[in-house]
Write a protein that binds this DNA or RNA. Structure first.
Lengths: 342, 342
DNA sequence: CAGCGTTCTGGGAGCGCTCTCAAAAATCGG
DNA sequence: CCGATTTTTGAGAGCGCTCCCAGAACGCTG
């Protein structure tokens, strides 16, 4: 009556070696690519592997190689549904795909509040994974510091707050440059009074987009800046407030597509024409939003899945320990996608 | 110059033993709970562990115990965004929480099309995880069979299709009973002409809900059954079609909340009063949907997070190999939540 | 306080693999 | 066809841990 194992215990290298009539070392070589083994033996071993249904024992292997073929993806869930955020989904998909390409698996660590931090730290130090990927969401989050302190290499998604003083490499898009391009586009359209619906102040992406806005519109009317929280509703509300404050408004740059969609909703309600009366530009080029705005949303595109992939590539380079080309952070390009709204 | 390892190599059991002046075996005992070791030695070892910052090597441990403290969660992504589906999120959250309680981690396997099946199979057989959790989504999916064939124990979320002949245990809610309760409620309200907006025919949950509908309304007018695909839009469309087909309609049971919300939308457009003219019942009691329907949606509640937790509990019991209480599948209760719409 | 049963402790084997190193086989030049 | 060189192979150590077993320490009883 088997207690732990399902069925008969699986064949070992030894067994394959015996079956093929070679040594354990030779089988190991073949299983790991077969370099420096004569073809005739390679074939024999391959057949034995096939016959016996041999699958290498992962634990034994990583005991000696000290590599695990796994990367932790750390998800902090501060308030809401990070998980079902389409932005997040795209990034994780990119991560997953790239990890697969590197023969690595994704271990999801879902952080349940601050009390859970110790568990995460212990896991990272426990030699289960080769590295960690995390997202720097809020500036008050103490998780990034924790991860940076762990014994494992890490890469962040999104630039961590300046104050944090963390030297962990990150992947982020050029939020500031993208915002600049958006606002410049509006200005080039002849718009004189360009407002900005900003994202939450505790996220670097939102701050950088505000900075980009200010780069172009030096010393703008402060009443033209309105705070949102990246949700559709907040965009609608902010738009209403901006219109009340400055009816002469002729353009608005929203810090993400969802808020831009909200703004469009308000504009429609108020019977303002887009882009004739007011031009609108978003940020993200999020499929699920952009697909059905009316009019089609002009926005700043960032390659979210690509950023996920880049996080993995960066981590893998770090793990190689190629100290020559010290892998710094990566800032990806954005591009303005012109559609109907501006 | 360290190549693989970050910093100095970590202390081993041996080192802790030396530091504490005991044997390796004793340290091992203490680290694993300390049963049968005198307090005075326990303290000494604990201190040594603390001093040296000892963390057990996972690979070495699972090499001998044959347990991995990890469970694969397999996500097939047939068409759309499974990941950002709130239903799915809740279930995964439940899984994550329960796994944490069992000191296990979640390894996400994201299946990228059929070509990826071999990779999944190899991973499951590779001795990385103790078990697998998967979701049986579509009847044409060949993944369930693959998983069932693997050397690892598995539990499904949602009842697999009958035809599949799989003996893998699953966790599902009582879809049929819930549907029955919903329809009975509508009938008890005096409604004579009750329609059903069904989910896709290749999902057992949808089929079971149809069956429940038929249980109560024996031999109903076939025109009262309209097919949707669990999206809001399909619910709106189905409602319109039903109204066109049978204007005398006085109640509708939608196979999920999202479609119910779509139906409500159509009813509002047509200036029909809910529940006075037409009563509406949904299924799921999904927070994000139910929160803002107008009127508040009466629906069949299922505990999605709880089902996730149950999947883990069931798997853990399977892994214990308690052959006595053969852990069969679990069908969880549903309950009708009466709000304003019916 | 001897004798016996019980509880603790440490020695040692071994989990399945990789990797170094030296021996064996193949290859080559003359 | 022989010795030197290169390539291929296998023996063996060891990764860090658990667990079995024998022996040491302990606690009782008479």
């Amino acid at each position: 009556m088997p207690e732990q194992t399902t069925g008969a215990s699986r064949p070992t290298l030894e067994a394959v070696a015996a079956h093929a009539g070679v040594s354990r070392a030779t089988v190991s070589r073949v299983v790991n690519g077969g370099a420096g083994v004569r073809q005739h033996l390679v074939d024999k071993v391959r057949k034995a592997v096939e016959d016996l249904g041999y699958v290498p024992n992962h634990a034994a292997r990583s005991l000696v190689t000290r590599r695990h073929g796994a990367v932790a993806v750390i998800i902090a869930e501060p308030e809401f549904r990070v998980f079902s955020d389409p932005f997040f989904e795209q990034q994780v998909r990119g991560i997953s795909r790239e990890l697969t390409a590197h023969d690595s698996q994704m271990v999801l660590l879902w952080v349940e509040g601050v009390g859970d931090h110790q568990r995460i730290a212990r896991y990272l130090d426990g030699g289960h994974v080769d590295g960690a990927l995390a997202f720097s969401l809020h500036s008050d989050d103490r998780l990034p510091a924790l991860i940076a302190r762990s014994s494992v290499q890490a890469v962040f998604g999104g630039r961590p707050p300046v104050g944090s003083g963390l030297s962990v490499p990150f992947v982020d898009c050029d939020n500031r440059g993208g915002a600049r391009e958006a606002v410049r586009h509006l200005v080039s359209l002849g718009r004189r009074c360009v407002a900005h619906i900003a994202g939450p102040r505790d996220q670097t992406s939102a701050l950088d987009r505000i900075a980009g806005y200010h780069d172009v519109l030096v010393d703008p009317d402060p009443a033209l800046l309105c705070q949102g929280d990246f949700t559709r509703e907040s965009g609608a509300r902010a738009m209403a407030e901006l219109l009340d404050r400055r009816p002469e408004l002729d353009a608005v740059f929203a810090a993400n597509d969802l808020m831009a969609a909200g703004a469009l909703h308000t504009l429609r309600e108020r019977r303002l024409r887009v882009p004739e009366d007011i031009a609108v530009v978003g940020f993200d080029d999020m499929d699920s939003v952009v697909r059905d705005t009316e009019p089609a949303l002009t926005t700043v595109r960032q390659d979210i899945e690509g950023m996920g992939r880049l996080m993995v590539k960066l981590l893998m380079r770090l793990l190689q320990g190629r100290s020559d080309a010290a892998p710094a952070s990566v800032i990806t390009q954005t591009s303005l996608v012109r559609r109907a709204s501006a």
